[in-house]
Computed example of a mutant assay.
Amino acid sequence: MGKGIFYAVSVGAGDPLDMTLRAKQVLEQADVVVAPVTRQGSASAAYTIAAQAADLSRAQILEMLFPMKAHTDYRERLRSGILQPVCAALDEGKLVAMVTLGDVSVYSTASYVRQLLEEKGYETRVAAGVPSFCAGAAKAKQSLCENGETLGILPGVASREVLEQAFDEFDNLVIMKAGRALSWLLPLLEERGLLEHTTMLRDVGMASEYVGSPQAEPYSYFTTLLIRQRGE
């Protein structure tokens, strides 16, 4: 087994200025940068952000395909052999860094990659980042939780039953990648009297960024809702 190190590197929500100094340092030392793409030939959003904040000229770029489809089993896809080039680089003693949007610890495919590589015996590390809901809350000048308030973080693919249970269990909620669920989620929020206490974040840190009413269109894959049930 080689002595290479794999880093899962968070690059933040979209604004290169939000990328951490640690992430910049790791990426500029990397021999290989893994850039996730949603389809062949498309640009990697995470790599594009990273390249604006760090000098990536010395690194080999390795694209890895992760289609953004509901119910995709990324763990199974990773076990299919697409990690072989990463393992080969690590076996050669190289520093390999995979960039990921937001933070590695929050619904990130890079987290699966790191876990599987560690199971194979490779040394892995993580560079933390700013998740979209934190960056968006800052843009909205809004607290996610105060005093003894509780905060629940859920994916937009969660069922109505799960979300309704979360409304009952938490004071405030973050619903990530909520765009496809808004057709039934917005009526639910209206029914509970929560529309006026909900902020929609779309494409935080990107050119198409929007922070405001949850009823504003268009929606996107990177649509997040901040819901304060106690209001402000």
Rank of each mutant, 00 (worst) to 15 (best):
G4E: 03
I5Y: 00
I5K: 08
A8E: 05
A8W: 08
A8D: 05
V11T: 06
A13G: 13
G14K: 08
G14Q: 06
D15V: 03
P16R: 12
T20E: 02
A23I: 06
A23K: 12
K24C: 13
K24W: 03
V26Q: 07
L27Q: 05
E28P: 03
Q29W: 06
D31E: 07
V33A: 03
V34C: 11
T38I: 11
Q40L: 14
G41A: 05
A43K: 15
S44E: 07
A46V: 10
T48N: 12
T48G: 08
I49E: 10
I49S: 05
A50G: 02
A50Q: 04
A54S: 03
D55C: 08
D55T: 06
S57D: 01
R58P: 00
R58S: 11
A59I: 08
A59K: 03
Q60E: 15
I61L: 15
E63I: 05
E63H: 13
M64S: 09
M68N: 04
T72W: 03
Y74C: 06
R79V: 02
R79C: 11
R79P: 07
S80R: 09
S80H: 04
G81A: 09
G81Q: 03
I82F: 04
L83I: 08
Q84D: 06
V86W: 10
V86I: 15
A89G: 02
A89F: 06
L90I: 01
L90A: 01
L90W: 02
L95Y: 03
A97F: 13
M98E: 08
M98D: 06
V99G: 07
V99P: 06
S105V: 15
V106R: 01
Y107F: 14
S108R: 09
S108D: 13
A110F: 05
Y112G: 10
V113Q: 06
R114T: 14
R114F: 04
L116F: 04
L117M: 05
L117D: 05
E118S: 15
E119G: 00
K120G: 00
G121I: 10
